[in-house]
Amino acid sequence: MKSRTHQLSAGRGTYVLLGAVVLVSLFPLYWSVVAASNDQAGISKSPPDLVPGTHLLDNLRRMLDLVDMRKALVNSFVVSATVTVSVVLTATLAGFALAKLRFRGRHALLAVIVATMMVPTQLGIIPLYLMMAKWFGWVDQLQALILPGAVTAFGVFFMRQYLVTALPTELIEAARVDGCSTLRTYWNVVLPVARPAAAVLGMLTFMNTWNDFYWPLLVLTPQNPTVQVALSSLAGGYVTDYPLVLAGALVGIVPILIVFAVLGRQILDGIMQGALKA
């Protein structure tokens, strides 16, 4: 970005204001550490303790007695990873076809995808629930989360937009002249080119799936929960024991914060690039 060199330097006031914003952004998370590591008395006094205490392990143990958070973490991971792989593969495959292959009806199909992106997800939730609960008998089964999440219109559209410009048509032609089938072309040519956008799509999908709340709450029970479902049952049943409940919240947040710490830079870039295309 050339214009950056022209950007105005920030004054002290800017740093003060931004510092305040950062403080507000991070404080609730810090507070979950404080509350999860103190006992009830520590966070109930006035003024409450504002530094982490020594009761973290105790609170975690009591929390684990109430909800199966270990199973929840495994379930969340299995669902998020499977959905992510599936979304990225189906989106790059369909995005490739829609961006670079010519076939009858491709404009109509793209229009359908764009249109479905605008339909609120909650509109179909009752039939989807009935389907899982009454027809398939998938209540408490992970495929009830994985299958509806396995493809997204946004993913296809996102990859298609990326590949239209990023994938040179000559490259595909060359592969064809060399006798590559379109599937081999996809594997050897398209996927490597698609990698940056696929990484962004994958990270966003993983985080969205991990944090998804409404749908898992409908089809899972505390016997076989994801992290969010486990948190919901904690919040529902034991509200007065805040150190315990917040220990649960902390466990729910930490994995995603680790992902963010490692890949946050790319997530940030992805969101800002995505914004420019919007």
Binding site: V21, P28, L29, V227, L231, A249, I256, L257, I267
Partner: peptide, 12 residues
């Protein structure tokens, strides 16, 4: 930092 709130889950 300003993006952190957005990646944490609604439930937590």
């Amino acid at each position: 930092s300003v993006l952190v709130p957005n990646v944490t889950s609604v439930a937590a």
